[in-house]
Design a protein around this nucleic acid. Structure first.
Length: 915
RNA sequence: GGGCGAUUAGCUCAGUUGGUAGAGCGUCGCCCUUACAAGGCGAAUGUCACAAGUUCAAGUCUUGUAUCGCCCA
């Protein structure tokens, strides 16, 4: 083995090997009793994996590899999403660069172009996943627009329509004038911006005077249907029922009352514009108001507006009308005002409430069972508190607008005859059959919201509506791993559709992960220039390349300077190559239940170091075993029994943490066992034990046994390096195993738990630590041999001393240990305690007297503080009588041993001081 | 306005039925000890945001306050 861990070569080797040998296949193990399945949340087919994906993939892969190791028939289902609007916008932008629109190209050609783009860029994600070692079943890879999945979409649509749960209706929707499509409520983002409030006069039709109202959108005055006041508003009691002129038009409208009006806001009188505001739409319906739409699909003033405004963009029209109002003396004032205009999450354009025909899912009947599934525990959110968020939304859920006026996606399976009759069917032929022969049909132009097909993902990928073996074996899936940002978009809808169509919940657990942020806690985004590509952490990247990557194709070139500066500061030397395993270990270690995760490169470095540690430990073991035959039945030393006992404890904890989805605790457990128990102590203990023929064989057997289990335990987190070590171990043990992947996950062996050996090693560690501490504080090099006296030892101390003389010599460089009778006078010494036993290291030229006095005083001071704590508790009558006896006894013992130690140290201090 | 979350060592974070506050990184010493300097050994560092309450006992449970963040309207 190489002296230094080199991830690059190892990873390339096993990436190929795993797939060649088909080790990710879900068909393997088909006779096993249990099945385990996870659906990969399908990423956008033309996108690339960001840190959040890599994080979630790591979690899913750990779970997948673990269950594979447990012998379950395991499926991790991969695939990608067509991501309707996002993908279409990319291709439209490409066209725009050539100064053409999708309408110039035509629907069919345009869709072809998108498919081309999908083919061209669709490989990015899958190749990134391979780099990460994601062990998905590639043979089962699906795309949301595959034939089978599209058929499932149609079937669901048709059935929901038949049941009256999908309907078409003219309603106000959120209209994106840039996309020229409706979008769902969820795709609307609101952010506070600075705007203006315009106060406008509406003259009375009869008599003098006017009503004053305030509006942020004066251009919609032209479509007003009424003015409204609160029914109980005394100020306007006399004017209710009167009529006013709508400024800039010839129309007149009434003054009405409605509870919706907020008396305290503005003048207490509002204009009602049913076609251009969601609230006003409801008021308008109550009062049977005329609905006037002023806008074209691209948000210009249409023919319903007075001539002089027609054709103007909505914002130009606003300016114009303000000017005209002012000229007409109807503008009272304009004040700055904070407002939150709705914007499209894709286009960023300000949205318009817009009156169009759209398809909707009537959601309440579907939501009810989905709420119950979480309430009755069929589905569990992890961490649990997310179910509050879920209920909060589900209890107030609105009908879902599913039609989009774009071209990329599943075309709505509805056809119209020339009279406008609708035929919803699985295919055109079926629709034709419904309509009758010879009737000319045209298909609905719209496509479905991308999330409609995503909602079917857990069963459509398994072959639904066919009753496939995969479907019966793997549905419901075991866990969904995803971010909180798509609980509403995706998770809730999968639950609703899964229950409705697949007859069961789509998953039993929902593991909601935190969000990966940059080192400053900022959300990673392209425009902020703080994104990290997981592959760059694996392969490393120079500062120059990173700068280039972060600043190319910027929407705002101004930002480039700032981003450059930031990047230069944070990554002055670029990013070193850490390897996939180090990155995966980092993600696993960060996977606690918090909401946000600040990603710290230093952590990756630390886990890369861990890999190196593991690598070198393996080298050590292999060097010590080379050319030797291993006897698994050899007698075991106390150290051997100890490490095996610790190993059982580790396995127990790992198992628990995994079932709790606490991958952070799992990785921490393994980190500590490997580094601190196995490397720091056991490998050091093994050195003298290997020198001794009596203990050599047992030590060799234990070294390799524990190493083998370590690699198997760590494999789900760091598959590459463990696979390489496993292979190297095979050459030593002469075994010929295909892969670590096919090894079964280690089980706890209770017979190996040994409290005696653990107690003895703790004794040994205390002894060695005591010596090291004196060495450390006295600046005595660890290489300098020492001798010591022991005094005040009991039988078991004596036994341990006799057993471990050569270990103490090796690990503490303790040449001679001389026993003193209690009455013997010890020479001037530095002292450490192991329980009641005193270890005395003669000062004799080695140790400075004052230093030892200071050291002892410090120790005593520390113990004194503890003593006071224990005494305080025990002197409290209420504690002694109120607390459980066991607890009180523990405190008593603690106090007793602290008092003993203080007494010993004080005696020693007095003795040295007096010399 | 409604809901959720966070506040623990210089930094990033663990802390599972309440029972002596932990890790990694960083810092300071001493060591190139034949697996590993991407390392070893040792050390220092905390009114657990604040206030009140429950309890023999609160980082942990309850209530309130402050600051920060997210979601929804």
């Amino acid at each position: 083995m190489e002296k230094t861990y080199n991830p690059e070569q190892i990873e390339a080797k096993y990436r190929a090997l795993w797939e060649d040998k088909n080790l990710f296949s879900s068909d393997a193990n088909s006779t096993s009793e249990n099945a385990y399945s996870i659906m990969l949340p399908p990423p956008n087919v033309t996108g690339s994996l960001h840190m959040g994906h890599a994080f979630q993939h790591t979690i899913m892969d750990v779970l997948t590899r673990y269950h594979r190791g447990k012998g379950d028939q395991t499926l991790w289902q991969p695939g990608t999403d067509h991501a309707g609007i996002a993908t279409q916008m990319v291709v439209e932008r490409q066209l725009a660069a050539q100064d053409i629109t999708r309408h110039d190209v035509g629907r069919e050609k345009f869709i072809e172009k998108i498919w081309d783009w999908k083919e061209q860029s669709g490989g990015t994600i899958t190749s990134q996943m391979r780099r990460l070692g994601s062990s998905v079943d590639w043979e089962k890879e699906r795309f949301t627009m595959d034939e089978g999945l599209s058929a499932a979409v149609n079937k669901v649509f048709v059935q929901l329509h038949e049941e009256g749960l999908i309907y078409r209706g003219k309603r106000l929707v959120n209209w994106d004038p840039v996309l020229q499509s409706a979008i769902s409520d969820l795709e609307v983002v609101a952010q506070e911006e600075n705007g203006f409030m315009h106060h406008v006069k509406y003259p009375f039709v009869d008599g003098d005077g006017f009503m004053e109202i305030a509006t942020t959108r004066p251009e919609t005055i032209l479509a007003d249907g009424a003015l409204a006041v609160d029914p109980s508003d005394e100020r306007y009691k006399d004017v209710v029922g009167k009529w006013v002129h709508v400024p800039m038009t010839n129309r007149t409208i009434p003054i009405i009352t409605d509870e919706y009006v907020d008396m305290a806001f503005g003048t207490g009188c509002v204009k009602i514009t049913p076609a251009h505001d969601f609230n006003d739409w409801e008021v308008g319906k109550r009062h049977k108001m005329e609905v006037i739409n002023l806008l074209t699909p691209d948000a210009k003033m249409n023919a319903n507006a007075p001539k002089e405004y027609q054709g103007l963009d909505r914002f130009v029209a606003r300016k114009q009308i303000i000017k005209d109002l002012d000229n007409a003396g109807l503008l009272v004032k304009i004040e700055p005002h904070k407002l939150t205009p709705p914007r499209g999450d894709r286009s960023g354009a300000i949205l318009e409430p817009y009156l169009t025909d759209q398809w909707f899912v009537k959601i309440a009947p579907l939501a009810k069972p989905a709420i119950d599934a979480v309430k009755n525990g069929d589905i569990r959110f992890i961490p649990e508190n997310w179910n509050k968020t879920y209920f909060n939304w589900m209890d107030n859920i609105q009908d879902w607008c599913i039609s989009r006026q774009i071209w990329w996606g599943h075309r709505i399976p509805a056809w119209y005859d020339e009279q406008g009759n609708i035929f919803v069917a699985n295919s055109e032929a079926e629709a034709q059959a419904q309509a009758g022969e010879g009737v000319k049909l045209t298909q609905d132009n719209d496509v479905l919201d991308t999330w409609f097909s995503s909602a079917l993902w857990p069963f459509s990928t398994l072959g639904w509506p066919e009753k496939t073996p995969d479907l019966s074996r793997f549905y419901p899936t075991d866990v969904l791993v995803t971010g909180f940002d798509i609980i509403f978009f995706w998770v809730a809808r999968m639950i609703m559709f899964g229950l409705k169509f697949a007859g069961d919940v789509p998953f039993k657990d929902i593991y909601i992960t935190g969000l990966i942020r940059d080192g400053q806690g900022q959300k990673m985004s392209k425009s902020k220039g703080n994104v990290l590509d997981p592959i760059d952490l694996i392969d490393g990247i120079t500062l120059e390349d990173l700068l280039e990557k972060r600043t190319q194709g910027m929407m705002q070139p101004k930002m480039a300077k700032k981003i450059k500066k930031q990047t230069q500061q944070e990554f002055a030397d670029g990013i070193p190559a850490f390897g996939t395993d180090a990155l995966r270990f980092t993600f696993a270690a960060l996977a606690s239940f918090g909401r946000d995760i600040k990603f710290d490169l230093k952590r990756v470095e630390g886990y890369r170091n861990f890999c190196n540690k593991l690598w070198n430990a393996s080298r050590f073991v292999l060097m010590k075993l080379e050319g030797e035959s291993i006897n698994p039945k050899a007698d075991l030393s106390t150290a051997d029994q100890w490490i095996l006992s610790r190993l059982q404890n580790t396995k127990k904890n790992v198992e628990k943490h995994l079932t709790d989805y606490r991958l952070d605790l799992m990785s921490q457990e393994l980190y500590e066992f490997v580094w601190h128990d196995y490397c720091d102590w056991y490998l050091e203990l093994s050195k003298p034990l290997l020198q001794d023929e009596a203990t050599k064989a047992g030590t060799q057997a234990t070294l390799i046994k524990v190493l083998n289990e370590i690699t198997t335990l760590l494999h789900p987190i760091i598959p590459f390096i463990t696979e390489e070590i496993f292979e190297q171990c095979n050459t030593i043990t002469g075994k010929d195993n295909t892969s670590l992947m096919t090894q079964s996950y280690p089980q706890v062996d209770e017979t190996l738990v040994s409290t005696e050996s653990e107690a003895e090693i703790i004794w040994l560690q205390t002894f060695i630590l005591g010596i090291r501490k004196i060495r450390g504080e006295m600046n005595i090099p660890p290489s300098k041999p020492l001798s010591c006296f022991v005094q005040n030892f009991n039988e078991s101390d004596e036994l341990h001393l006799n057993n471990n003389a050569n270990i103490l010599s090796a690990l503490a460089k303790m040449q001679e240990i001389n026993k003193l009778a209690p009455s013997d006078e010890a020479p001037e010494s530095a002292m450490a305690l192991v329980g009641e036993m005193k270890i005395l290291i003669p000062l004799a030229g080695l140790i400075d007297k004052d230093q030892e006095i200071a050291r002892l005083s410090k120790e005593i001071e520390k113990l004194d503080k503890q003593k006071m704590q224990f005494e305080g508790k025990l002197n409290n009558e209420k504690f002694v009588s109120g607390a459980p006896e066991a607890i009180v006894n523990v405190e008593r013992e603690r106090l007793a041993s602290t008092l003993n130690a203080i007494a010993d140290l004080n005696a020693q201090l007095d003795k040295i001081s007096s010399l």
